[in-house]
Structure formats: C-alpha cells, structure tokens
Computed example of a mutant assay.
Amino acid sequence: MSFLKISNLRKSYGSLEILKDINLEIEQGGFLVLVGPSGCGKSTLLNTIAGLEPITSGDIAIDGRSVAGLHPSKRDIAMVFQSYALYPNMTVAGNIAFGMEIRGVPKDQRDKAIREVAEMLQIGHLLDRKPGQLSGGQRQRVAMGRALVRDPKLFLFDEPLSNLDAKLRVDMRTEIKRLHQRMKTTIVYVTHDQIEAMTLATKIAVLKDGVLQQFGTPAEIYNNPANIFVADFMGSPAMNLLKAKVEGDGGGLAVSLARPEAEPLRLVVDNAPQGLGAYRGREVIFGIRPEALTDPEGADHNARTIAQGDCLIEVVEPAGADTFAVTHLGGKEIVARLRADARIAAGQKARLAFNLDKACFFDPDSQRRIA
C-alpha cells in the first residue's frame, strides 16, 4: 500500500490554477523528488502536503489516513527549509531540542536524542555554538537534526541545498543519501536541480506549469522521457533534439538528418518504436543523449544498433574525463560526448557513432514520445 498518496489534487488562488489534477504515490521508505523549473508548482505541492496551504480539491493521504484539512501539527511531518530557520539566540543543542521541549519531552530523553542525531550528522563538536558561528553546511545539518529528532512519519525538504556553494551541495547531497539509506525514512524533496533529483530519488515527479509531466524512477525519466520537455529538462548536457525525416529502408525504417553543406546523414533504425512506422515520409523530433553519440571506439559494444556517420566538428571542449564535441545536424547545434583521449579537432570531419538503442522519437506537434 502507498505510504503517501496524492489523488486528483488541485490548488487555485481565485481563478489562477496552480496545481492541476496531480496524482502521485510513494511507498514507505521511498524518496520522492519534485522537480521542475521555477514557478512550476513544486513548492506549492510540498506546502499542501505539509498543510501550510489548503487544497482546492482532491485528497492527500499519509499512511492510509486522509490529512486534507488537517492542521500541520496533526500530520506527523517534519520540514527542512531552504533558509534553515534556526533561532539565532539559541545554541545548536537548543535549536535541535526546541521542538521536543515544547512537546514536553523529558530532559534525559531530549539529551539522548540530541547526542544520537549529532553523532549521525557529525555535529557533536558544534552543540554549544550559535548559528552565527556556523557555515552554511553546518547550519543545514542543524536544521536536519531538528527534523530528525521528531522521528516523524514523513520528512519534507524544500530546496535545502540551494543556498550552498557547488562543492558543499555535492557533499550534503551525499549526506542526505546516506541518511536516507540508514534510517529508511520516507522523504519528499523539492529541487530545481535535476542532478539532485537523479542522484537522490527512488521516484521523480517532473512538473511544468502545475501539470505533472512524468512520474517514474530516475532511469525511466532519463531513458524514456514522456515528452520533449522532460527529455530537455533532465540530463546535463541536455538531450540533443533535432528534426529528422522518417524514410523506408527495405522492410524497415531510417531517419534522415540534414547536414550543412553535405548530403543528409541517413541512419537505419533497427528495433524502431512500433508507432514510428506511421510517420513514414513525415518529420519527427529525433532525440539522442550526448553519451549515446560518441567516437566509434568509445561506443557501447553491447548495443544492438550502432549507426555511424561523418560530421563536421565545430568546437571541441576538453572536460577532464570526457571531451565534448559540437556539430550541426538536423538544422541545429548538437553535442557529442567522447572519450578523453579521442582524436578529434575543430574544423575537421570526424566519424561519430549513434547508439540508436538509446534514441527517442517525438511527435513534433503533440511533443509526446512515439512509443
């Protein structure tokens, strides 16, 4: 049975509809990440789960019990905010213990809980300090500790790492992942960072303009995006999305990609999606991720369908472990991800390998993936 279930949820402010018929569910111990661009409704959705915002219609159930209309204090949740929200006049220990003290938890139990959480989060040496004496990462650990001592049914995180620098974000992401694996807690986590979403989640919900675009595991979202928006939003660098014409190839299919000052590049598509045949003679959007477009020596030798073609390389970007190459196909700039020692130079033609097992095809009008 689902531990958190959101059914037909709508949220409006007057005539302005913010959330539009959201349906989600996550099992106990799951890690649900709500991701999307600014203004997509993800923080509003988190606030409805917390009870900070009333819902317009639909239902939210936690552990089999509807909490729609229930006061936040009755929902058995704990929330970690982007702003830390620590009391500046209290010590770290005081901040962690404050909620327990308000609830009348005996001092010996409070002290034990503080010690356990401080050890878990590696902040035992900070318990006597004030928030103003802490770094951003340390403050976020204290905010997490204050939530953990509650031992709630559900943890809610609202962009907790967005105020940290890049390296600290990576470190804290690892800490949150480790914490979840150790405690088996159920977490709902809001972020605009799709790398955070991919690395932390057991399930991802991608939102745009208050509409749920896709809900699935990180692998499902990344490898089988439901539409062009998800394909473009998830992944860094983003998926290459270019115009292609579907043609017949004997009993099979091929796609033709325009090249500047050259004949179109024709790729035979074995194991094509069943629906692609209906587009014969028509244009589609051909999607391929940079790592599926590489030098022939670096191609996945376990792939069923590898097609090759010569492309004029315009820009080469060494990036340590990888080399990125920019070329033009299908009327737009695309990125290939090559091995670090790939022999390639700007201004020259190079043979690239297309792993068509990883290719996606989208309808240019509906923008939905062709299955």
Rank of each mutant, 00 (worst) to 15 (best):
L34V: 05
D158K: 03
M198N: 05
G235F: 03
V284M: 07
V335E: 06
A319T: 08
P54R: 13
E101W: 04
D232W: 08
D21Q: 10
G281F: 12
S162C: 11
S2L: 03
K167P: 02
G136H: 04
L16T: 15
G347H: 09
R115A: 15
L148Y: 00
Q274W: 03
M1C: 04
V246M: 00
G14T: 03
I22P: 03
Q348M: 13
Y279M: 04
K20L: 05
V170G: 01
G58R: 00
P218C: 02
Y13R: 11
A201P: 07
A113P: 08
T174F: 11
N227P: 03
A299T: 12
V230C: 02
L32P: 06
I114S: 07
S38K: 08
A97S: 15
G320A: 01
L121H: 10
N23F: 07
L161Y: 10
T323R: 12
L126K: 08
S12C: 13
Q82W: 10
D158A: 09
S83I: 10
E175M: 13
A350F: 13
E283N: 13
G58M: 01
L156Q: 01
A278L: 13
E25N: 15
L312I: 10
P88G: 14
L312M: 14
S135G: 03
A85D: 11
L200G: 08
R282V: 01
A61M: 12
K203I: 08
G30T: 09
V316S: 07
D295T: 11
E119S: 14
R339S: 09
D300Q: 11
A97E: 15
M239T: 06
H192D: 09
R115V: 13
I102W: 13
P218Q: 07
A292N: 13
G41Y: 04
R146Y: 02
N47Y: 11
C40A: 12
A143T: 07
V269K: 09
I176T: 10
P264N: 10
N95W: 12
V190K: 02
T294G: 08
I96M: 15
R110V: 14
E317Y: 02
K208E: 05
G14Q: 08
L212N: 02
R178Q: 14
F155H: 00
N224H: 14
V315M: 11
D365C: 09
G39W: 02
L52D: 01
R115P: 00
Q138Y: 11
Q274S: 14
L179D: 06
D357Q: 11
L164Q: 08
A113E: 15
G29M: 12
F362M: 06
A118E: 04
Q213V: 07
M172C: 05
A371Y: 05
D193E: 04
L134A: 06
K167T: 02
L45N: 00
A258T: 11
G58C: 04
G69K: 04
E53S: 06
K5P: 00
